[in-house]
């Protein structure tokens, strides 16, 4: 049975926009560095960061593409609050395949970052377990309050049938 239905194909090209609610903030940056056990002074020390040529302390590079700080909703039954497409696919589990990040400048605590997700493609391909699985390619664009791109996150997830669909 084909996983990639006509209904699902109509999702390709959809967008979801999340406006910034506040500045990223020093607390978010220090919290992330502590969570990763990252002692790099660039993330907590303004004077140090200025000596290295930055206007202030900076965020660890992947913070902006990993955080769901852009979201503003109560957790769903899984606890998650970040972006999800909620595709009409039954009986599949979601597996992260990989990410490809591009960064255009260091992110600063005063940045207000809005995010636009686009569903670029859904493809059905053979699975090594037999049957097929869906590859869902999305891109998130992160912009500052001037509209300039600060980062792009290209993400691929796999929707794998719990039982091979032979």
């Amino acid at each position: 049975m084909a996983l990639l239905t006509d209904e699902l194909k109509r999702w390709i090209g959809r967008e979801a926009h999340y406006p910034a609610h506040e500045e990223l903030g020093r607390a978010s940056i220090r919290y992330f560095a502590l969570a990763l056990d990252d002692a790099n002074p660039l993330y907590v020390d303004d004077a140090y960061a200025r000596q290295a040529g930055y206007p202030s302390l900076i965020a660890p590079p992947t913070l902006v593409v990993e955080t769901c700080q852009y979201a503003h909703r109560r957790p769903d039954e899984t606890g998650y609050i970040g972006h999800e497409w909620h595709l009409p696919v039954q009986g599949c589990r979601l597996i992260r395949a990989g990410n490809d990040y591009e960064f255009f400048r260091p992110v600063l605590p005063d940045d207000r970052i809005s995010v636009t997700w686009t569903l670029e493609d859904i493809a059905e391909r053979p699975s090594s377990r037999g049957g097929t699985q869906l590859f869902v390619r999305s891109v998130a664009r992160y912009r500052d309050d001037k509209g300039d791109l600060v980062a792009i996150n290209r993400e691929t997830i796999v929707l794998q049938p719990l039982e091979p669909n032979a």
Partner: peptide
């Protein structure tokens, strides 16, 4: 560590 990372990224997924 997992709780700290989840909280720092605003990701409260129970997994």
């Amino acid at each position: 560590d997992l709780v700290a990372y989840g909280a720092a990224t605003w990701d409260w997924h129970r997994m």
